[in-house]
Amino acid sequence: MSGVPARASPAVQAEALYLINLLLVPGLAFLLLLLLFRRHRNSTDPLVRGHVRQTVAASLLAGLLLAGGPALMVLAGDLSRPGVWIGMVLYFVCCHGTLVLLGVFGLARALAGKPFSYPLLGRYA
């Protein structure tokens, strides 16, 4: 089917690394994503360029949301109060689940040879 990239396309790799960073090996997968970003951030193929740039920006945002939110709650709240734990559990599960789902949507779009913009990031491509 024309327009559908090969499985090893950098667009697919970028989306897969975004998900691996969230699910399996945080940090290491992000470093690999940065390598991919260095190589393809100015690719002439808008599909590759878009997915690579979007995933790096989304990973940074994910890191901020997943680390920053709970950190704020710990700093501002009293951990001996159950309400803080309820907030943290709900926040982390919802935030992480949403970020993973967005990655799934991005990977599905990349596999179909289509662009994808993560919410909050605009059309950084």
């Binding site: 089917m1 559908v4 993973v100 789902l101 799934v104 949507f105 990977l107 599905a108 779009r109 596999l111 179909a112 289509k114």
Partner: peptide
């Protein structure tokens, strides 16, 4: 379940 989500969206995208 992760794969089912990817599967459904991938098929609809294609």
């Amino acid at each position: 379940f992760f794969m089912m989500t990817l599967f459904a969206f991938n098929m609809v995208n294609r």
